[in-house]
Design a binder for these strands. Structure first.
Length: 243
DNA sequence: CTAGGGTTAG
């Protein structure tokens, strides 16, 4: 967790030298550490050396490759898992579908999600949250809304994340009044908003308020930003807010 | 008498 992977590896060698054999949890802890440290290739090397093939390790690797932006390799790892006879579980599909969404492959994510719905796997709210989030970020807020609205028929109960994701999607689309209505409905449905929900809706309202007050990136604003960037009062990451 | 490792929102 502290990204001190080489020390962790030395510890692994030490335990082996003392006759204490690592098991799948030991290995997975280190493989996950490699992935979090953006060293998924090193994680894969360790994986190739071990003989245990279980679902959690594959899940770790699929996520590692996705988060390293190598979603094709993540998909290949998933295929390998299936061909090795290791059965994917809910977490596998959550990781795979989220990885596809985060790497610009929303259509593929939706396709897998639809296959899952036809399968006899029991889907819980997590996969719905992931796909609704993917749709909202992929400019398919209307599709997200339709899916969100279908949850009661499917016997799946929306949680605070579902509402927050959907409210965020409506805000992004510019439908602030619909977002407000959903925020109200969420309370009526007995789901309490949390800090994420409030941040989402407050940010959208502030953005509207700024527009109404005539704030925009005009010449004088740009000059102010450029000045503040040059004297260091404003961090460069601020610019990402503007796009 | 068998822990501990992998998943979603701004």
């Amino acid at each position: 967790m502290e990204k001190r992977l080489d020390e962790a590896n030395n510890m692994l060698d030490l335990m082996v030298s003392k006759g204490c054999n690592p098991d799948c949890v030991t290995y997975n802890t280190i493989i996950n550490g490699y992935c979090k440290a953006k060293r998924v290739e090193d994680g894969l090397k360790l994986f190739r050396k071990m003989s245990i093939r279980e679902v959690v390790t594959y899940n770790t690797l699929v996520q590692g490759f996705s988060q390293a932006g190598k979603v094709e390799v993540a998909q290949e790892t998933f295929e390998e898992m299936v061909s090795q006879g290791v059965h994917p579980d809910n977490v596998t599909y959550n990781i795979l579908v989220d990885g596809l969404c985060e790497n610009g492959k929303l259509d593929k994510a939706i396709q897998i999600f639809e296959d899952l719905q036809m399968s006899k796997m029991e889907l819980d709210i997590v996969i719905y949250n992931i796909i609704i989030h993917g749709m909202c970020n992929g400019s398919k807020v209307d599709d997200a809304w339709n899916l969100f609205s279908s949850l009661p028929h499917k016997g799946v109960k929306a949680d605070v994340k579902t509402y927050t994701i959907m409210i965020g999607g409506l805000c992004k689309k510019g439908s602030l009044s619909e977002a407000d209505m959903l925020f109200k409905k969420m309370g009526e449905d007995g789901i309490a908003p949390n800090e994420c929900t409030y941040n989402t809706i407050i940010r959208a309202h502030l953005g509207e308020e700024m527009k109404r007050c005539g704030f925009s990136a005009d010449a004088s604003t740009m000059k102010m930003v450029i000045d503040m960037l040059s004297n260091g009062r404003l961090d460069k990451s601020f610019l990402s807010m503007l796009s």
